[in-house]
Amino acid sequence: MDIEQLTYTFPKALQPFFKDLSFQLPEHQVNFLIGQNGAGKTTLVDILLGLRPFKGHITPTLTNIYLNQQLPMLTSIRVCDVAVLVLGIETGRRRLTLADLASLVDGPTLAFLTPIWERHYRELSGGQRKLVQLLLFLQVDRELVVLDEPTAMIDREHAATLFTVMRAHPDRTYLMITHDVRDLAAFPAYQVLWLADHQIKASVDRATFEAALPQSAFMQAFQTV
């Protein structure tokens, strides 16, 4: 995915926030977006999703889905209700049983959802609630999947489940905002984009990232985000 000469100005702002931003998102792999709070990560994601008007070119246009950092759901509903909502919307089914689930979701998601299928949201931990939505949304078939800090507020066991599900769909292009360097180790190939000062300051692949010296500007930056 090529992003060329992207310029974006906030409504009522005089100066553009991003000016002539150009970078690439290699398809069918994970792309990490890092940067300090206020760097514009979510704004950049909004632009890539087509939610903010911009000047420039993004090619090709990919079907996409976005997963928020945290999404409140009604505590009185059950996990199966959330599954019917997300998977029903995607598949056109009005009803969904646990038996149906096996044909609609991947193995790790089925293993995670089965024991909690009938449980109410209020009976789940915050991490479990988040993972329920993340895993269900990851069953929706889109070319570009954008995850906004998916591992914030979930433990590493749940993060590992999330990454297993992501790896189960290698045909997609992932863009993940993260502040946790441990997330990178879960993927055999990736690109890290460092957003700072309204520019993509660095764009490195796994080999370059792992070979980078701790005192390099890029690694120093990761320590601070």
């Binding site: 909004d46 996409n64 976005y66 950092q69 945290q70 999404l71 409140p72 995607e90 929706v140």
Partner: peptide, 12 residues
């Protein structure tokens, strides 16, 4: 304002 439309708009 809770970010719900942004996420679910890509689903519907």
């Amino acid at each position: 304002e809770q970010g719900y439309l942004k996420q679910y708009a890509s689903l519907v």
